[in-house]
């Protein structure tokens, strides 16, 4: 039963949050965008803790690496260690091209590593990829 894709965006920059919202509003696939503005909030959201008791389980997580308090890397580690959350695809968004970041991310088994674009068209491409990605995984049997 599929009423669109539920996305958790973990991002602290309000400009980037708004941009993401605007882009996903134009997205062909119906979607619900939830936002956590730091690593602690993200973990609470995923564990349905506190104010996040009734939130849906996201189908996709967009994760920025550079977050205040708990870092994106720690959030990623938490997700991959938790058997409940492990299978949620994670797309890591970051401005850092540093190889270390890339390697670390792959060692932590993110599904995808995307360089935050300086350019709107690149962001649109990212969304395209996510749409295609979603369309492809929708074909898999439900967990």
């Amino acid at each position: 039963m599929n009423d669109g894709i539920k996305i958790l965006l973990v991002e602290d920059n309000p400009g980037d949050i708004r941009l993401t919202r605007e882009i996903f509003n134009e997205c062909k696939i119906h979607n619900e965008l939830h936002v956590a503005t730091d690593g602690e909030e993200a973990t609470a959201f995923l564990r349905h803790e506190g104010t996040f008791a009734g939130v849906p389980r996201p189908d996709l997580i967009l994760l920025d690496l550079n977050l205040p308090r708990k870092s994106g890397r720690e959030v990623l580690m938490d997700i991959k260690k938790d058997p409940d959350l492990q299978r949620i695809p994670v797309v890591v968004l970051t401005t850092s091209e540093a190889e270390e970041d890339i390697l670390e991310t792959y060692n932590l088994h993110a599904n995808c590593y995307i360089l935050k674009p300086v350019d709107l068209h690149q962001f649109l491409n990212v969304v395209n990829h996510i749409e295609n990605f979603w369309l492809s995984i929708v074909k898999l049997p439900a967990h």
Partner: peptide, 18 residues
């Protein structure tokens, strides 16, 4: 400088598009 630049670039382009 990359981040503020990103904001300016993205929003101007969004404006143009929208």
């Amino acid at each position: 400088l990359q981040e503020p630049l990103r904001m300016v670039a993205s929003y101007i382009q969004l404006l143009a598009r929208r």
